[in-house]
Amino acid sequence: MGDHSHGDPNTSGTVATAGQAEVEKFQDPGLPPHRPRLADKDPRAEKRAERQVAILFAISMLGTLLFFVGYFAIQLDETTAISTLRLQNLLLGMGTAFAMFGIGIGIVHWAKTLMPDHEVAEERHEIRPEEDRQVAEKMIGQILDESGIKRRPLIRNTLIGAGVLAILPAIGIFRDLSQNLNPDILRQTMWAKGVRLARDPEGTPIKAADVTMGSAFHVIPEGLNDLHEGKLEAKAKAVVLLMRLDPADLNISPGREDWNYNGIVAYSKICTHVGCPVALYEQQTHHLLCPCHQSTFDLTHECKVIFGPAARPLPQLPITVDSEGYLVAQSDFHSPVGPSFWERG
């Protein structure tokens, strides 16, 4: 039986070595003979290499100058033409590139051609000497002994308690990064009974008569543009795509009969997969395609998923018209818009 934890593998008896009985060992082939470089032998080649390195550093200096020419000589204001902006971009980029490139290439070229290149062999340290291990073991034993952590369980237990508790404030701080943990904000949008459907981005209301067959309108709730705070958050939840189909093409499930108006239907534009805007509407096939992961929704079957990773149909916004002929929402969406979340249920 060999000893696995002590000594050299060759002598511990755990490893069989080739030709153990023979005295002959594998010979160290040594290093190849040193070959002098051109710059070592020829003073002219040395001079040339020196010049090349200096030129590379000079290129770096020119690059830095080019950067500052672009930075200071070109003034930008409201009247700046796009071509001037592009010229500055070019100068800044080229300047920085040459400034860094010149130094880097120059230093490597210097080291390769001019700095001494004699070969050096360095011996590897002995792997895991037994004494070092014993010293470390002794030190740890001493620390445990002197601190008295084994003899004083009160101190040990209070230390463990303090360590566990000290992590909790971090959880509190990171939790606060999410401004509102109430999942109900994910269930509610700006849509409510009587809110008019308005064009994105102008915010003008849409008449039912404006939505001709085959049309697609990008819709926001009226009043969204007047919000001063949280406008983008509200928009991200409330955007809707409005389309008109032949009412005969719609397959309506019970309870949703009055959610469309003469074939005009409104669906949330937020994909139920990871929330990209689903707005690629094909007016002949009535497919809605999400550009991110190709989830495809069939508008004629209440936007059920017919392809792709989305798990749920797009929520439908029940709509009708008000007394002036403008399209209005009957209520908010009946299911949360966008991707799933823990409390969605």
Binding site: D210, G214, S215, A216, Q283, T285
Partner: peptide, 13 residues
């Protein structure tokens, strides 16, 4: 006109 699968963007839109 909304050719083929492109939706129509009429003057009211």
């Amino acid at each position: 006109t909304g050719p083929q699968n492109m939706p129509v963007f009429n003057d009211a839109n």
